[in-house]
Nucleic acid binder design. Structure first.
Length: 544
RNA sequence: GCGCCCUUAGCUCAGCUGGAUAGAGCGUCUGACUUCGGAUCAGAAGGUCGGGGGUUCGAAUCCCUCAGGGCGUACCA
């Protein structure tokens, strides 16, 4: 429908001026029209004509178009178009059709075991999972995976503290209740991290324990390590579920990726990599990165080498056309280097891996997630949200979820998120619960009416503005999908709900002479709302 | 030092590949309720789009420069 109009305009320009133009239909202020385009401004220069004159010529031709009710020229040479009611209704009823049909892998969460999940992890997981939804909407075969650091320095730190606490008696672990495990782990990590900086002997000891995470050749170590890993993954699954995310179909571990990554690096020393002070490094400067160590001078693989291994594991499993890795912005330059190195070692993977970087999560109270403070523990967030939701008289889990998810998703990926608990659950303004309430309200009207809806044909003024907004949905989803940015959907849904609430404020549905027709509008509206919320994995409730 | 990112209303953010009077929410002030669910709606105040140049018919958007902030810069992940 939109494409048809676009083609018609291209056709007109072709006929009139014999010019190939790229027509972009924009949505102007509603006073101007349903669509606008600026082709006349583009054409004026090559044609050597006055833009308004060109616009008028095009407009005169377009006036014949059966999709259009009226066409006018305004400003410097904009062509403004109003659709016929029929065309507008058709547009409102159309759905975004994808069609990419590629195979895609995306990491939708990657918290490390032995550490507590914090708000940053939640943000990352929600963002990535919603991106995965968008990729599915596009028609791709999407595989959600995760990747976790089960080896290395942080494991050494945790193990140091835990082993010291156990003092040889591994059965002490059984005394830790399920809901205490998360804080148990984070406390020991914090203690180990503190000990690491204390003195040289402890540091050596922890480094040794970190090494053991690769080998697991000590029986006590192995037993404790495996229990803690299991706890961590149970906890991660619980939190992922609670956040409303989809589970992953495959979980990758750094320990699995390590050997393959190191071998790949060793195979390319002298060509892609070079040796320096006994370590193997990649010079990433020309790729916007920096010189980065892939294999340490002691021969052990580092994070970068493991990423190289991981890319190959994913490729073996899925042969994906695209592979998305969603991380914090601080890893942006790092990934430029790793991806450049990977493409040189593994030509099959050229153009496959994409790193999407998110911003930091800050709290409105001013504390930042990079701090080690436990106030940013994910459970703390849940508690805060629960309290706030209950204080407003609604304790439903899906409202809490809608509030959290929407608060994260409404900001553009890449900019920092300032998370304000009070605002997120306020149920007023641009929030998840506002949209959920809007949906419940619309459904309530549909339940309450006792007559059948009828096809609406011509539109009254207020009805028209609602239908116009509904007609923007398909374009919005297309934009969100093509740029992989969920916030477009959020912004649109909020505006849609506002438009409806305005309509509803001054137009009755039930009992009105146009009740049957308006019921159809309410139905279209509630479905659009639900479809949009589905993309965000936010429940559209029947009532609240 | 070098590199990347950011700077829009008091606060938190949008602003669609440069386009028409720069838009929302929160907060503040003023209104609308025997409510088809007021968890709503209407209105007001509030902006030299960090500063300065440039390109263009036209710049919050592109280029240069300066200031301020964040992140990254070799064996952490």
């Amino acid at each position: 429908m939109r494409q048809q109009l676009r083609q018609n305009i291209i056709g007109v320009c072709q006929r009139l001026f014999n010019q190939e133009v790229d027509v972009v239909l924009t949505r102007p202020d509603s006073q101007f029209g349903d669509f606008a385009c600026n082709v006349a401004l583009q054409l004026a220069k090559p044609l050597g004509k006055n833009p308004r004159e060109v616009a008028q010529m095009i407009a005169d031709e377009l006036a014949q178009d059966e999709l259009l009710q009226s066409v006018s020229v305004a400003g410097p040479g904009f062509i403004n178009m109003f659709l016929t009611d029929e065309a507008l209704l058709k547009l409102a009823g159309s759905h975004y059709e994808g069609g990419a049909g590629q195979t895609v892998v995306i990491e939708t969460n990657n918290p490390n075991p032995f550490k507590a999940m914090h708000i940053g992890h939640a943000y990352n997981a929600i963002t990535a999972d919603t991106m995965a939804n968008l990729l599915q909407y596009e028609g791709n075969d999407v595989h959600r995976v995760s990747y976790h650091g089960d080896v290395g320095a942080h494991v050494g730190k945790s193990m140091y503290s835990i082993l010291e606490w156990l003092d040889g008696d591994t059965s002490k672990l059984e005394t830790i209740a399920i809901d205490e495990r998360n804080s148990f782990m984070s406390e020991h990590y914090a203690r180990g991290a503190a000990a690491y900086d204390k003195d040289e002997t402890t540091k050596q000891k922890i480094n040794e324990l970190a090494k053991q995470s690769f080998k697991l050749d000590d029986q006590t170590y192995k037993t404790v390590y495996e229990i803690c890993i299991a706890w961590s993954f149970e906890e991660i699954d619980r939190i992922i579920d609670r956040l409303g995310n989809n589970r992953v179909e495959k979980r990758y571990l750094e320990s699995q990726a390590n050997a393959l990554g190191v071998a790949t690096v060793q195979d390319h020393v002298g060509t892609v990599f070079r040796e320096s002070d006994g370590a193997v490094v990649f010079d990433g400067e020309q790729y916007g990165s920096f010189t980065n160590v892939f294999v340490a001078s002691n021969g052990e693989g580092l994070y970068a080498a493991r990423d190289l291994g991981l890319m190959q594991l994913k490729h073996q499993d899925f042969q994906a056309d695209k592979s998305y890795i969603v991380t914090g912005g601080e890893q942006r330059d790092y990934f430029k280097g790793v991806i450049a190195a990977a493409e040189q070692c593994l030509p099959d993977l050229k153009g496959v891996t994409v790193n999407v970087s998110t911003g930091l999560v800050k709290l409105s109270t001013g504390k930042m997630s990079s701090r080690t403070g436990d106030v940013l523990d994910i459970h703390w967030l849940f508690e805060q949200m629960e309290e706030a939701v209950e204080a407003r008289g609604s304790a439903a889990d899906h409202i809490l979820l809608g509030a959290i998810r929407y608060e994260f998703l409404k900001v553009k990926i890449g900019s920092d998120v300032v998370f304000d608990v009070g605002e997120a659950v306020s149920i007023k303004g641009n929030t998840g619960p506002y949209l959920q309430y809007a949906h419940a309200r619309a459904r309530s009207i549909l339940r309450k009416s006792e007559i059948q809806s009828e096809n609406i044909m011509n539109l009254e003024e207020d009805e028209r503005s609602l239908v116009r907004k509904l007609g923007e949905y398909e374009q919005t989803v297309e934009l969100a999908v093509s740029e992989l940015l969920p916030h477009y959907v959020c912004t649109y849904l909020y505006e849609l709900a506002q438009v409806f609430n305005r309509f509803y404020e001054s137009n009755t549905v039930i009992g009105h002479e146009r009740e049957a027709q308006r019921l159809q509008l309410v139905d279209m509206y509630s479905q659009t709302l639900r479809n949009g919320l589905d993309i965000l994995n936010i429940t559209a409730p029947e009532q609240m």
